[in-house]
Amino acid sequence: MALLPGPRTAAEDAPPDDAPAISLRGAALSYGDREVWRDVELDVRPGEFLAVLGPNGSGKTSFVRALLGRHPLSAGTLSVLGRAPRAAGRDIGYVPQQSSLSTQTMVRARDLVRFGIDGHRFGLPRRSAAVRRRVDEILDAVGASAYADVPLGLLSGGERQRVRIGQALATDPRVLLCDEPLLSLDLHHQRAVTALVDARRRSHGTAVVFVTHEINPVLDLVDRVLYLARGGHRVGTPDEVLTSESLSELYGSRVDVLRVQGRVVVVGAPDGPATPAHHDTVEGARP
């Protein structure tokens, strides 16, 4: 199952192969007087899979918003592919959190993918044969061809996530941001979605930032973890960060990390990553 690249122009200059896809230095983000996180020093390399973990209100979704250029840092610097986040534009693919859809929604799976190709343009979308072929290629690559013409409101959560990944990959991004893409999915669909993301980063060297409340579905894929908590943050491999000592120090209270049959279970952390689904909020509002 190949995730095919779209056309690029000479004007779309790629950074050097050894340059980080994402770079933060002394980065901090605040909402009014409330500082969500600070002093983040992080480079994410091309092809790296970074999992972002933490309890409610720790700023995971806010981290993604900063990478998208939707919320400015309150301190420090952030670059994506050597540019300001908003300037990275079509080089960033984004898979948002699941949202409920009415069964009356008439937008089809292929329409959503097409929006990923030409949704940034003013005027009517292009309907050329080349665009139709590109849409079909993407739908096939993410395993969604069978329901290409089905309205999104009639698809299951797992089917919709496949289509959203297709939309995010439509411009052949160098960075893929996934904000809680596994919420409300059963184990089968969790595996399917994570396999798609992993296939993309391995075949194209795409840097992946994967926000999740549950580490176990992606544990075998993760290169490093950014764990955000109100007491600070930790960056490192899963074996370095997901330990009793590391998380106890981070939270300032006893936290036990257990490994049972290849799964990580966190006990004692307030709303930690082993807890079921949540929504990342700041002072009652989605960041």
Score class of each variant (00 low, 15 high):
Ala274Ile: 00
Arg132Pro: 00
Val131Leu: 12
Gln190Pro: 03
Glu245Val: 04
Arg70Leu: 15
Gln261Tyr: 03
Pro276Met: 04
Ala192Arg: 13
Val95Leu: 09
Arg70His: 10
Leu29Met: 12
Arg201Met: 11
Val52Pro: 13
Thr105Gly: 10
Thr194Phe: 01
Arg191Gln: 14
His278Ser: 11
Ser244Asn: 02
Ser30Glu: 10
Thr61Ile: 03
His189Thr: 01
Arg121Asn: 01
Arg230Asp: 14
Arg133Cys: 00
Gly157Gln: 12
Thr243Cys: 07
Ile92Asp: 09
Leu221Pro: 12
Val257Leu: 01
Pro72Trp: 01
Ser62Tyr: 03
Ile22Glu: 00
Asn216Gly: 10
Ser100Leu: 09
Ala109Pro: 14
Ala75Leu: 02
Ala207Cys: 07
Asp172Thr: 11
Ile165Lys: 03
Val211Ser: 09
Asp280Thr: 06
Ala11Ile: 00
Thr194Cys: 13
Ala229Asn: 02
Lys60Asp: 04
Glu180Leu: 01
Thr171Pro: 00
Arg110Phe: 00
Pro173Arg: 11
Leu152Tyr: 05
Arg45Ala: 14
Gly54Trp: 07
Val209Phe: 01
Gly143Gln: 10
Pro181Gln: 08
Gln97Asp: 06
Leu176Cys: 09
Asp280Ile: 04
Gln97Gly: 05
Gly143Ser: 10
Val135Met: 09
Pro7Gln: 11
Arg83Trp: 02
Ser184Leu: 01
Gly205Lys: 11
Leu29Asn: 02
Ser30Cys: 08
His204Lys: 15
Arg38Leu: 01
Arg134Ser: 11
Met1Ser: 15
Gly59Ala: 12
Ala144Gly: 06
Phe122Arg: 14
Leu24Gly: 12
Asp118Asn: 13
Ala168Val: 06
Ala14Met: 07
Glu48Ser: 04
Ala168Asn: 07
Asp256Val: 14
His188Ala: 15
Leu50Ala: 07
Val44Leu: 13
Leu185Glu: 09
Ala109Val: 08
Leu169Arg: 10
Ser203Phe: 02
Val150Met: 07
Ala229Cys: 06
Thr237Pro: 10
Val241Asp: 05
Asp239Phe: 03
Arg133Met: 02
